[in-house]
Amino acid sequence: MTNDLVDIPITKYIPLGSGRTRANHYIKYMPLSTSTSFYRHSFSPSIIITWNNLPASIAESPDLVSFKRGPATTRF
């Protein structure tokens, strides 16, 4: 969605967050506000936190192949 590979305008549903901090990347999204732990641990809110914590070398990949491959030293 970030690289417009699907026809879903991500910023319409999830606003962009603040800029780069320390070793993180520029493409951050605002975490969704949740009032229940059931929703907090569902896909959308939890994947935003995961995305925002990705290393810049992965999140700022120029294409899908580079994103999937990632750097050889990256471990989750």
Score class of each variant (00 low, 15 high):
residue 64 L to V: 13
residue 12 K to T: 11
residue 59 A to Q: 11
residue 51 W to F: 01
residue 71 P to L: 10
residue 20 R to V: 03
residue 42 S to N: 15
residue 20 R to H: 02
residue 70 G to Q: 04
residue 75 R to G: 05
residue 61 S to D: 03
residue 65 V to I: 13
residue 24 N to T: 06
residue 5 L to H: 12
residue 74 T to R: 08
residue 27 I to T: 08
residue 57 S to V: 15
residue 59 A to R: 10
residue 17 G to Q: 00
residue 56 A to N: 07
residue 14 I to R: 06
residue 35 S to C: 14
residue 67 F to M: 04
residue 34 T to C: 09
residue 64 L to H: 14
residue 48 I to H: 00
residue 38 F to T: 14
residue 52 N to I: 00
residue 71 P to T: 09
residue 64 L to F: 15
residue 46 S to D: 06
residue 37 S to A: 07
residue 23 A to P: 06
residue 19 G to Y: 02
residue 48 I to A: 01
residue 31 P to R: 08
residue 35 S to K: 13
residue 48 I to G: 02
residue 1 M to E: 07
residue 67 F to Y: 06
residue 33 S to Y: 13
residue 64 L to G: 10
residue 2 T to C: 06
residue 45 P to Y: 01
residue 74 T to H: 09
residue 74 T to Q: 10
residue 29 Y to T: 00
residue 9 P to L: 05
residue 42 S to F: 11
residue 74 T to I: 14
residue 50 T to H: 12
residue 63 D to T: 05
residue 51 W to M: 01
residue 26 Y to I: 11
residue 70 G to A: 09
residue 1 M to W: 02
residue 19 G to T: 08
residue 15 P to G: 05
residue 75 R to S: 10
residue 22 R to L: 12
residue 69 R to T: 09
residue 16 L to H: 11
residue 56 A to Y: 04
residue 24 N to V: 05
residue 8 I to E: 00
residue 27 I to M: 09
residue 22 R to P: 11
residue 36 T to W: 07
residue 44 S to N: 13
residue 18 S to D: 15
residue 51 W to R: 01
residue 73 T to A: 12
residue 64 L to M: 15
residue 11 T to W: 01
residue 66 S to A: 12
residue 27 I to V: 09
residue 50 T to R: 14
residue 50 T to C: 14
residue 38 F to C: 14
residue 8 I to Q: 04
residue 71 P to D: 10
residue 40 R to S: 09
residue 64 L to Q: 15
residue 56 A to T: 03
residue 16 L to N: 11
residue 40 R to D: 07
residue 26 Y to L: 12
residue 1 M to N: 03
residue 40 R to M: 06
residue 9 P to F: 04
residue 8 I to D: 00
residue 7 D to H: 11
residue 74 T to L: 11
residue 39 Y to M: 14
residue 28 K to R: 10
residue 4 D to H: 09
residue 18 S to C: 08
residue 6 V to G: 04
residue 8 I to L: 04
residue 75 R to N: 08
residue 76 F to Q: 02
residue 41 H to A: 07
residue 75 R to M: 06
residue 38 F to D: 15
residue 45 P to S: 02
residue 24 N to I: 12
residue 9 P to V: 09
residue 32 L to N: 02
